[in-house]
């Protein structure tokens, strides 16, 4: 299962980075596919990216919402919210575990052999603050003289933008070097911190800071497909907990918002106590034994 997942992650990263003409043509892909968003976090200013980033697109729409409303258009990012919401309702955080290019990058960094650390449980909620403040409130409310906001998550924090956007673009477009200033070094600092974090703590960015993971995580308890735990088959060997890259305990809470649905726990359980399948409909509040 994990090999299959790695294959899917790699294929999806290749597909979303299918523009290989960037050294010869325009620095980034400018074709019609950029009108669609990838389900994962991947900077649309990456020279090879063929799809747009949902977090960046959403912030840009919020940042210019006053101007578009003045022109009579109702552009408040509903297409992005709707798109991500449909994915979330169907599969919860499945894209985090299987489709996100930055998730794959973190998985690879975590393979570097060093002593590993555990993330204290309280930090799990920081990503909701990032979603609320950097992705929604600041682009919407912090305006410049022209009445425009800024994509503050991209500007201040996004490591995908720095790693897959800024660094390759600076290599192929030396004219951009003159724009290097405070925000660039600020982002480099955070990129280094996040990479060090990813080497020491599994899925560091996903668990701590990712606003997309925070949004998808809201649906883990209601998604149509979800992880299901069969208590009668569980022998409490804790193999699922040991294999979980996000520190979840599927035997206690199979649909925690921290779970990225990578299904490593399903693979680890030799007793069939865990399965990823369609969510059952609760037909009665009575326990099954009493109903029968």
């Amino acid at each position: 299962m994990n090999r299959y997942r790695r294959l899917v992650q790699t294929l999806f990263a290749i597909i979303t980075n299918g523009y290989l003409l960037f050294p010869f043509g325009s620095a980034i892909y400018q074709g019609p596919l950029k009108g669609f968003c990838t389900p994962g976090l991947h900077c649309y200013s990456c020279p090879a990216a063929v799809l747009s980033c949902p977090v960046g697109a959403f912030q840009n729409m919020l940042a210019s919402i006053r101007l578009t409303l003045q022109s009579g258009a109702w552009h408040f990012g509903s297409i992005v919210v709707g798109y991500l919401g449909v994915i979330g309702v169907i599969s919860g955080r499945f894209p985090c575990g299987w489709l996100c290019p930055f998730g794959l990058i973190q998985d690879l960094f975590y393979k570097i052999r060093t002593p590993k650390l555990k993330l204290p449980a309280g930090f799990n909620y920081l990503r909701y603050l990032v979603l609320l403040v950097l992705v929604i409130l600041m682009p919407l409310l912090w305006l410049d003289d022209l009445g425009m906001g800024q994509p503050w998550f991209c500007k201040l924090l996004c490591p995908s933008g720095t790693l897959t956007g800024a660094l390759p673009l600076l290599l192929i477009k030396p004219s951009l070097w003159q724009g290097i200033g405070f925000f660039f070094w600020h982002k480099i600092f955070w990129l280094v911190m996040i990479i060090v974090g990813a080497v020491l703590i599994s899925r560091f960015f996903c668990r701590l800071l990712c606003p997309l993971g925070a949004f998808y995580g809201l649906f883990n308890r209601v998604s149509l497909f979800c992880l299901q735990f069969d208590e009668e088959k569980c022998v409490h060997c804790l193999a699922c907990e040991r294999r979980c890259p996000t520190g979840c305990r599927p035997y206690k809470d199979a649909n925690s918002a921290a779970c990225i649905n990578c299904l490593r726990c399903v693979e680890a359980c030799r007793f069939g106590a865990l399965a990823f399948q369609r969510r059952p409909v609760k037909t009665s509040s009575l326990p099954e034994k009493l109903r029968s």
């Binding site: 669609f36 697109a57 109702w74 297409i79 992005v80 673009l169």
Partner: peptide, 27 residues
Amino acid sequence: LLFGLNSGEVADILNSGTSICLSCIGL
């Protein structure tokens, strides 16, 4: 999703995606 499609938000995504986002890359 359908409301966004109908109101032309795809064009907004296309516009932001086809130019280099200097904010995104810290420049």
